[in-house]
Write a protein that binds this DNA or RNA. Structure first.
Lengths: 187, 187
DNA sequence: CGCCGAGTTGAACTGAATCAAGAAACGTGG
DNA sequence: CCACGTTTCTTGATTCAGTTCAACTCGGCG
């Protein structure tokens, strides 16, 4: 909870009163390894904040699964396009480890929009955070080689990455598991 | 102006009163071909809505330029990471054609946040639009081949693409100009 | 103990990068 | 408005990184 508040505080000021209201809407939940927090066809109605654990957000395509994203501690997580448009999610999110999250429902978030000063700002911050994350990744696809993308990932999440099966890392980087295996062999 | 209102209206309801206030803050501007609307090191303080023309958002790297984005009519445009964080932009935006835009400054946007009902929602919608756009592009990098990315672009902006030099299209797709030339030769 | 999925390794193949040269298009100044 | 020079586009030959297909190993779990 403190982590979440800290992150929000770096962006906006939240009055104590508002925070009381907001935190009353936050719920906690734990997941076992391999639990799904959302599957395709369902409409996302939550935004999560990860306290512990790792998640994988991916899309199932006819030929292969594509890993869009990992969720690490202190990240926001959601099938956010589905959340925004309230249309069925094309992505699944699965926990890769035992995990603990804080979440808020869309309904409660709307309450917050209405009843607090800082509410709408929080909605904006979610969107902005999701945007900045995507931008970073887009740039990496344009300027880095697969090897560089792997090394960046290792640098940013050294310990956590060890818990992620290599085939998922490969898919996130945009290469085959075989190619990743060879990249690792060369280092 | 109507186009912008229409797009906002598909997301939120804006009262006539609010729209009066908001539109009083909107400014118009025209650019000649090759004008820069922002260059590196500067802090972005505007969000643009394109009425006419095409823009290119890119980053200058030691080895090569990387085209992050094109701005087409009815799109929002900004060095948005810089706008959000108020840190110097790493990207440049240049007009590829004679262009006409509506823009709003950060200062005026903040006025809107304070003085209208729908204001904060508009800030959110900017962020959400930018996010959804990036997500789409991320997925395309993961699941489509360069050829498919080119064909998608052609399909979405058939007439406008003809005004964009191929080297920029190549850079946007993530390949060399030579490779794009060969792709086109095969079609 | 045997099975199964994950990871590794090898060989052949493929698509894009690179280097290079020539053709076409573009704008700039006379 | 044309002529020149520059930039952009095309095309070819070669190289290289990643894919594909396949066989084998390892580790965990029934």
């Amino acid at each position: 909870m403190e982590n979440l508040l800290n992150i929000l505080n770096t962006k906006i000021t939240i009055s104590e009163e508002d925070w009381l209201f907001i935190s009353s809407k936050l719920q906690e939940k734990e997941f076992k390894k391999k639990d799904f927090i959302i599957t395709t066809q369902n409409i996302e109605d939550k935004i999560y904040f990860i306290q512990e654990g790792i998640f994988r957000l991916y899309i199932e395509l006819p030929e292969k699964d594509v890993t869009i994203d990992f969720g690490f501690p202190n990240n926001f997580l959601s099938s956010y396009s589905s959340f925004l448009t309230q249309t069925p999610s094309i992505a699944c999110i699965q926990s890769l480890t035992k995990s603990k999250v804080i979440f808020i429902t869309r309904k409660d978030l709307q309450e917050i929009y209405l009843h607090t000063q800082s509410g709408e700002s929080i909605g904006r911050i979610f969107a902005e955070e999701f945007f900045r994350y995507k931008s970073k990744r887009e740039l990496s696809f344009l300027k880095d080689s697969p090897t560089e993308r792997y090394l960046n990932l290792v640098k940013e999440q050294p310990q956590l990455i060890q818990e992620i099966p290599q085939k998922y890392l490969a898919s996130y980087i945009g290469i085959t598991p075989q190619a990743l295996s060879r990249i690792r062999a060369k280092i």
